[in-house]
Amino acid sequence: MPDPVKPIAKGMFLTMKHYINMLRAREKTNVTVQYPEERREQFSRTRWRHVLTRYDNGLEKCIGCSLCAGACPARCIYVQAAENSDEARYSPGERYAVRYEINILRCIFCGYCQEACPTGAIVLRKDFELADYNRKDFLYTKEMLLEPLPIQADVLPVPMEKARGMVGAGKE
């Protein structure tokens, strides 16, 4: 019968070696993040909660074209368009989204909507804390998705000529 002590001692030695290595390493790198007090930096192309963006002058980029809704594999976007008027202008050009809704429960964060959008209006950003208490609250409305107005935005609504001039100008 072989000696039982030797292999056990060998195994114990290996375990101890890893344990000590681990203790040493932990002093240098910290794998566990103390969420929510601490947060990890997100990758730049992370796709989480959607945002409807604005031009620098405050006009909405979304033109209500529904291309995002068409591209969405989960069919979770609802867009209803309406016509801008000189009295009430929301976006440059003729058309804007009067209703824009995303059912975030059905969204699979594929980012196709962002890819389809001709104006770069809908983007997926880094806010991943999407838990909520009520199913209805997962229906993100346009108001919830829109970026806040930039601080120095022209007061909306703005007249047509002015809005035309402003597009692009804001980009520089």
């Binding site: 209500g64 074209c65 529904s66 291309l67 809704a69 068409g70 867009v79 368009a81 309406a82 016509e83 003729e94 058309r95």
Partner: peptide, 9 residues
Amino acid sequence: YRFKARPWD
């Protein structure tokens, strides 16, 4: 029908 819907809607 202007701006009411797109064909895929």
